[in-house]
Amino acid sequence: MGENGAGKTTLAKQLNGLLRPTLGRVTVDGDDTTKKSVAQLSRKVGIVFQNPDHLLFSETVRDEVGFALKNFGFELGVIVKQVERTLEALDLAHYADTSPFLLSGGERKRVALAAVLAWEPDYLILDEPTIGQDYQQKERLRNFILQLNSQGKAVVMVTHDVEFVAECNPKVVLMSKGRIVAQGQADEILSDDGLIEKASLVKPQMAKLFSQLGGFGFPRDVVDVHRAKMLLEEKLSEVKVRVAQGS
């Protein structure tokens, strides 16, 4: 996370060799990216660009999503299965035979995501994956990412969507002006006034709420609605009892 122009996309492109460092070294599984081709690195590191139109070129959504699998030489049976599974997971099955260019912005973004998620690379780089997505689509995406993550895949997500981050609660790397300025768990970072200011973020609503309710003895690092609800439930029930007994 970090302000516009912080260097997030530039860093993401370093991870599959689209950009090479002019100083220092980037390694993927121990291999220096300057010694590997983008094609070799892409097999391991799948990147979904910020702008979906940079990726799309096939005639149908199904072809688009199967393109890389075909290129990597997977068997037809595997391709069909993976394509169907991914289309299903991202709510695109009904567009399988449609041209990606006839879809809405959010739908195109999901096609771009599906095209990479389908081949299940070891490392996934998602640049602003929630753009154009409604809440339900974000939930699907979150579940899909969590599922891949639990299978041992590393996921790097670039995003400005603080509420989405609050729900996923991943490790956050904060960038500003081309540098990494902080790293930590999302609930710590997103409730830290200094860091929020530095990286041009705003707090998630729950963090705003709990920092203003500080006087009532709540913790400050609350970013998620369900934790917020539990904490408030407890205090509000106490009040209810007090009121019932007192007056």
Partner: peptide, 28 residues
């Protein structure tokens, strides 16, 4: 699937449990 404000969501959950009664807030 609309992305409703989290304070409104929180309030609707508390309301369901009978802990608050006011109208849903739309901002913090």
């Amino acid at each position: 699937g609309i992305g409703l404000p989290k304070v409104s969501l929180l309030w609707s959950l508390l309301k369901r449990d009978g802990l608050v009664s006011e109208r849903l807030p739309t901002h913090v």
